[in-house]
């Protein structure tokens, strides 16, 4: 229950803070929770002294065309909640789900499969005076069907 309350609190803060554009960042990540790469938006929704909590929503697509060479993209949506400590140099810890949807053949019938994975992040972020940031992180995933995947991500972004 306390987690639900915490989530609601964060969501309320998020709504208020969303009006402050300086807390919004856009970044691209090679590797990371999106798989091979993703485009992402990030919102810092809670800050206290050197601590910052943020939420990230991304989008990744491996292929636009399916095995019949028809438009039918593979979609991956990583969502990560993270906690950072520091100002210019930050340590970052995060966790969240990733959703993916992709065309497959099941018993030779064309279908769309959906997978849910858990993504984790432990990284270092450097922010420049002009609000560009760079992050290198260990981003392992735990995927459906019990597969643990060690993974890494390199992100480059800018606070708007």
């Amino acid at each position: 229950m306390k987690y639900v309350l915490l989530f609601i609190l964060c969501a309320c803060v998020c709504k208020l803070e969303a009006q402050d554009s300086s807390r919004v960042s856009l970044f691209i990540e090679a590797g990371g929770a999106g798989g091979y790469g993703s485009l992402n938006g990030e919102l810092d929704f809670l800050s206290y002294e050197k601590w910052t909590m943020s939420g990230r929503l991304g989008l990744s697509m491996y292929k636009l065309m399916d095995f019949e060479r028809r438009f039918n993209p593979e979609l991956i949506v990583p969502l990560t909640f993270s906690l950072r400590y520091g100002k210019k140099h930050q340590a970052e810890l995060g966790v969240g789900p990733s959703f993916s949807s992709f065309p497959v053949l099941k018993q030779m019938e064309k279908q769309r499969a959906f997978l849910l994975s858990a993504n984790f992040m432990l990284g270092y972020r450097y922010t420049t005076a002009k609000h560009f940031f760079y992050r290198l992180a260990f981003t392992p995933m735990y995927e459906t069907n019990k597969s643990f995947r060690p993974w890494f991500g390199l992100a480059i972004g800018k606070r708007l």
Partner: peptide
């Protein structure tokens, strides 16, 4: 489980 986030089945040849 070669690629993150996408998974495929092993096929039997008679079905294929």
């Amino acid at each position: 489980i070669v690629t993150p986030h996408v998974q495929y089945d092993i096929i039997r040849l008679d079905e294929l």
